[in-house]
């Protein structure tokens, strides 16, 4: 089922647990990967917000990828990046207007949030429920007569 990762900035304390959970969940050969989520200060009321891929309806990352390495997983709704297809041109890193396509320098891979295949690990670990995960319920629209 399509998932939505719900971010509630009011609740984020900036503890960075999500970052750690994400890095470990995306380990490469036993070494933690680069976190795909970034809790950042908002500059207001000492408030923080986790910044993470929005899995846009019209994603700049996928549009900029000339080899079609970024595609929508229809099951989870996530925009996923296929590292076997990626030629590391950095177009998506430059194009995402929210900075959510990233270069993992340690593993020399281009990476982004994949909603962990439909069950985001960050949401499980967030102690304050600033991150939660809910299935997308298709909205019913009234028929226009």
């Amino acid at each position: 089922m399509k998932q939505r990762l719900i971010v509630t900035p009011d609740l984020c304390t900036g503890c960075r647990t999500c970052e750690l959970a994400c890095a470990f969940a995306h380990s490469v050969k036993g070494k933690p990967g680069r976190s795909r989520i970034y809790p950042l200060p908002t500059g207001k009321h000492e408030m923080w917000t986790p910044v993470v891929c929005l899995h846009c309806d019209d994603p700049a990352c996928a549009k900029s990828c000339l080899v079609d390495a970024i595609t929508r997983n229809e099951e989870t709704g996530a925009m996923e990046l296929d590292n076997d297809k990626c030629v590391k041109c950095m177009a998506c890193v430059a194009a995402c207007p929210f900075g959510c396509s990233l270069h993992d320098a340690q593993h020399d891979l281009v990476v982004k949030c994949d909603l962990c295949g439909g069950d985001p690990v960050c949401a499980h670990f967030c102690p304050t429920k600033a991150l939660t995960c809910r299935p997308v319920i298709p909205t019913r629209r009234k028929a226009v007569v």
Binding site: P9, H45, W48, K63, V93, S101
Partner: peptide, 29 residues
């Protein structure tokens, strides 16, 4: 070729993330 607005390329990924967090702060306040 891909219709990506040119100003998307003016900021790096890190500054794009920071811009988004600041916007979020303004919306919440």
């Amino acid at each position: 070729q891909r219709n990506i607005p040119e100003d998307y390329f003016e900021l790096c990924d890190e500054c794009h993330r920071r811009e988004l967090s600041v916007k979020m702060g303004s919306i919440v306040s």
